[in-house]
Design a protein around this nucleic acid. Structure first.
Lengths: 112, 112
DNA sequence: TTTTGTCTGTTCTTATTTGGAACTTTGCGC
DNA sequence: GCGCAAAGTTCCAAATAAGAACAGACAAAA
């Protein structure tokens, strides 16, 4: 089955995942909740390629989760800001954060 | 950046996503929360290929989110059951479900 | 004024992952 | 024995991602 078929799925979880259901998209959203808003910040912070960042931002804007606001014309520069709709996803990221803290400690050698 | 590098990321969200951060994995988890537990059920319900289902189940078991319990030896047949650790992810799926219900209604022609 | 740097993308080629279908193994019921 | 089921595995083609370079439009420095 194709990923794109999911947006018409009977299940609301599947439909949501058709928009935000991949690693990079969710990491970009994490950045948004941390206050980041620019293309370069997302690319640097997530480690995704610029290509991926561009495609994911496009999808998030299309879905109404982010809005693209120009803070400079000539040269064109943009902020990507969370909409109210986007902010409603915050609790999910919170769950992932808490779960990661609790169950996936960073393995480091002799930090103590 | 490779997906696998994420499991050592400083960010707990990124580490969590290194395990559950893809569409099919999250759909399989949804099925688990709905009471499904078998390979065939996951494959049929999610629409993912058997190949994908196999690899995702393997990852979830490795991460301690599911346990593989044999309900038949010869032929070998298994149930995949949520662990307590896995059940802690339930609220995240709840957020996705509610968000999908609220913002991504299924478009149908003249059902009313 | 030439150079360097920044920001937001796009394009290109290669590598990895996925999709789709067939095949395997181990039985069961007829 | 014959067809069927469950849980995977294997194979090849197609789609997606990685990595790096390139581009356009400026600003600031040399």
């Amino acid at each position: 089955m194709k990923w794109t078929d999911l947006d018409e799925n009977w299940c609301p979880v599947a439909r949501t995942l058709s928009v935000v259901g991949d690693r990079w998209t969710l990491l970009i959203l994490r950045d948004c909740f941390l206050g980041k808003s620019r293309f370069g910040e997302f690319a640097a912070s997530t480690g995704a390629t610029r290509h991926i960042v561009a495609s994911r931002l496009k999808r998030l804007v299309d879905a109404g989760i982010l809005t693209k606001v120009a803070y400079s014309r000539r040269p064109a520069r943009f902020d990507y800001q969370l909409t109210d709709k986007g902010r409603e996803l915050s609790p999910a990221l919170g769950v992932f954060r808490d779960w990661g803290k609790a169950h996936l400690p960073v393995r480091r050698r002799a930090l103590s």
